[in-house]
Amino acid sequence: MIISAWISIAALIWCIAFLVSYLIGLIRKGAPKDLSERSGNTVKGIIYSNTGAMLPAAKESAYMHLPTYTAGMIFHIGNFLSLLMFVWIIVCCCCNISTPAVLALILAALLTVSSLCGIFILIKRFVNVNLRSISCFDDFFSNIICTLFQIAGICIMLSFSNICTYTDACSADRLCLMNFYFIVAAILFIWMPLGKIKHLIYYFAARYHLGFFYGWRNTWPPKHI
């Protein structure tokens, strides 16, 4: 494997180490402690928090902002897909195998859509005065690096399908592209636990706490009146 690949793997290890330490930190502090008499069902509350409460119809942040919500969902799907693709590319590099051309095209198409969504959200953050007023460097950079990671993934998929294997890059003009991809990945992994992308962990914790809170008080799951 080329050196940039090793750098990205090291960055990934750094990232995982941080995220796991955050997770352990949360777990160590334990479940919420509440001495009041429980009125509802916390398990049902937590389940609802992660299911029904996330449906677009349940949240103004979704149904009042459908274009942004949709773009956000697609962008996040693209991010997860990109992370899985990174693992796949590393495996391909190690095992000297290639991605089937059809699969590569499908992935590239999906990432094209999701990266466009990322660009849309980024533009909105630049253009919308309110949004810009609550934003800092981290908000812009986190979006840019994720979008760039997806775009780099598209390039890799289009360049390295079963036409050639990833190891070919070491001896071909595709080396530059491979380096670009792995460097972007490395920057993303280094940034992830520092910037707001760490909500990858805290999002789930937030849904848990919210489900516990509303479940305890019998607000969630909601009653039909």
């Binding site: 949360l26 502090k29 103004e60 949004l131 934003s135």
Partner: peptide, 23 residues
């Protein structure tokens, strides 16, 4: 921060999407 996972969680979870404004 030392004792409350909820506090740590909610301090780190906001992504400043701004969609809460209209609520």
């Amino acid at each position: 921060l030392a004792s409350d996972s909820k506090f740590q969680t909610h301090l780190n979870a906001c992504v400043r999407c701004g969609l809460c404004a209209t609520s």
